[in-house]
Design a protein around this nucleic acid. Structure first.
Length: 200
DNA sequence: GACGGAACCC
DNA sequence: GGGTTCCGTC
């Protein structure tokens, strides 16, 4: 079934879009490789497909909670994800099952008591997987927390972060919000602890 | 709604 | 490996 993203007016982005937003040595995605080998049924670039949905904020960062986001429109997010993966039967129940598999990987966890609210486990990833002086949390360049971050690309633990769904959610949360709100929040340790000493 | 097991697909 | 689908349970 051909993907009809473009016919529905969803804007596209440059091919290196993800690299610029999430600058890590992630390389091509699984889907991209498949497409490169002619195995995709979508017929469009995976990274260009359904990346944004104009004028609709389907996912939003929870201001004040670092890395926490709320799925404002679960059905729409599931629909976009399903279209991206050429799975028209996708729904929030199935998508949330995929998210729950991230719990064990410590990439994501559920915010208890808040509907459709999850939280990226940025701090755990940084502490557990990489020397802090090598890592910044994913962010758009103009929102990086410290000036030194502007001078070199962020490094992110590849094994943890090259997960397509969580990357897509991160992008949607960032890109579907107004420019002034494009932030996953601030880390609780953001003000002058040892993890940040290398920036000074 | 959220969880997690299990089988399945690519 | 990274989901997708289904389902029973809470």
């Amino acid at each position: 079934m051909p993907c009809n993203c473009f016919s529905e007016g969803i804007p596209t982005a440059p091919a290196n879009y993800w690299i610029s937003v999430w600058p890590s040595p992630i390389g091509p995605t699984k889907l991209s490789r498949r497409q490169a080998h002619g195995r995709s049924s979508c017929g469009t670039s995976s990274w260009n497909c359904c990346r944004r949905k104009s004028s609709t904020h389907v996912i939003a960062w929870q201001q004040g909670e670092y890395g926490e986001f709320v799925i404002k429109d679960p059905d729409e997010v599931a629909r976009l994800w399903g279209r991206r993966k050429c799975k028209p039967q996708m729904n929030y129940d199935k998508l949330s099952r995929a998210l729950r598999y991230y719990y064990n990987k410590r990439i994501l966890h559920k915010t208890k008591g808040k509907k459709f609210t999850y939280k990226f486990n940025f701090s755990k990833l940084i502490v557990a997987n990489c020397p802090p002086w090598k890592v910044w949390v994913p962010s758009t360049p103009h929102l990086l927390l410290r000036p030194p971050a502007l001078r070199q690309p962020a490094l992110v633990p590849v094994a943890e972060w090259n997960e397509p769904l969580c990357r897509v959610l991160y992008t949607w949360a960032t890109e579907t919000q107004p420019a002034g709100e494009r932030t996953p929040g601030r880390p609780p340790e953001a003000s002058g602890d040892k993890e940040n000493s290398s920036f000074n």
